[in-house]
Every structure is written in structure tokens, then in C-alpha cells.
Computed example of a mutant assay.
Amino acid sequence: MLKPSDKTRAAARRGRKMPTPVEVHFWGLLRDRRLEGLKFRRQFPLGPYVADFACPSLRLIVELDGGVHVLRAESDAARDAWLSANGWTVLRFDNAAVLRNPAVLFEEIRRHAGLESTD
């Protein structure tokens, strides 16, 4: 079941109101269909989870991982497995990669979408 609970929806709203600096940076590059016309949503609730960024038309989730994710590898793997079992693809990127070279992330998203690079 993908319907989010009230608790998950509230967590998504909090995430949209208080994004991390890296999420703000990435959203500034991604919003308004700036990537090949693809529509992404931020802090998108799905079942018991909240995706950092989701493109519903591609059933694609982009997760930006800070240092804490090193300690959460097992729970992240379980989360990714649940999302995959429900038809979503999860792409994970380290926060540093977003800040250093976001073009790498965009290229991976384009590859997943079956689009050629415009760079």
C-alpha cells in the first residue's frame, strides 16, 4: 500500500519547510521542469516513507545522502527494497556530489529516463 499516513504527510511538510542546504541547492537546479521537462516533487510521501525528490511519471526517487546515512545503511536498504517492490527506482547520491558536480546526477537521471544528454 502506497497511501501515506497522516504522520508521513506531516513529516513531508516539515521537510519542505525545513530543507537541508543541499536539498535547497539541488531543488534550485531541478525545479520548474528544468531537467528535460521532467516534473519532480520534493519531500514526496510514499507509504511509510518520504522521498527527498520524486518524479512520478518515471517512478523515480532521488535521495541525497548526508553523513548520517553511513550509520543507516541497513534501514536505507530496507527502505529502498520496499520502494522497489512497489515499482519505484531509487537513485542515491552523496551530498558532496550534489555540491561538486550536479551534472553527474542529472546525467544519471537522464540515463534512467532513457534521454540523451544535452550537455
Score class of each variant (00 low, 15 high):
residue 15 G to M: 15
residue 104 V to Q: 11
residue 33 R to Y: 12
residue 106 F to R: 04
residue 63 E to T: 05
residue 95 N to P: 02
residue 71 L to R: 07
residue 60 L to H: 02
residue 19 P to W: 03
residue 101 N to R: 13
residue 83 L to N: 12
residue 74 E to V: 09
residue 53 F to K: 02
residue 117 S to D: 12
residue 106 F to P: 14
residue 63 E to K: 04
residue 12 A to D: 06
residue 70 V to W: 06
residue 41 R to K: 05
residue 24 V to K: 06
residue 112 H to W: 07
residue 36 E to I: 03
residue 111 R to S: 15
residue 16 R to E: 14
residue 79 R to H: 10
residue 114 G to K: 04
residue 101 N to C: 08
residue 55 C to H: 11
residue 118 T to A: 15
residue 48 P to F: 05
residue 33 R to V: 03
residue 17 K to C: 07
residue 5 S to H: 04
residue 106 F to T: 01
residue 39 K to V: 04
residue 108 E to D: 01
residue 118 T to F: 10
residue 2 L to Q: 03
residue 9 R to N: 12
residue 59 R to Y: 09
residue 55 C to P: 13
residue 63 E to C: 10
residue 110 R to G: 05
residue 114 G to Q: 15
residue 32 D to I: 03
residue 36 E to F: 06
residue 60 L to Y: 06
residue 72 R to T: 00
residue 109 I to V: 11
residue 2 L to G: 07
residue 22 V to D: 12
residue 85 A to P: 03
residue 2 L to R: 02
residue 56 P to S: 08
residue 16 R to L: 04
residue 21 P to C: 04
residue 1 M to L: 05
residue 4 P to M: 04
residue 37 G to V: 08
residue 75 S to Y: 12
residue 14 R to V: 02
residue 46 L to W: 10
residue 86 N to V: 02
residue 42 R to M: 01
residue 18 M to P: 02
residue 103 A to I: 03
residue 34 R to C: 10
residue 65 D to W: 01
residue 92 R to Y: 15
residue 107 E to D: 10
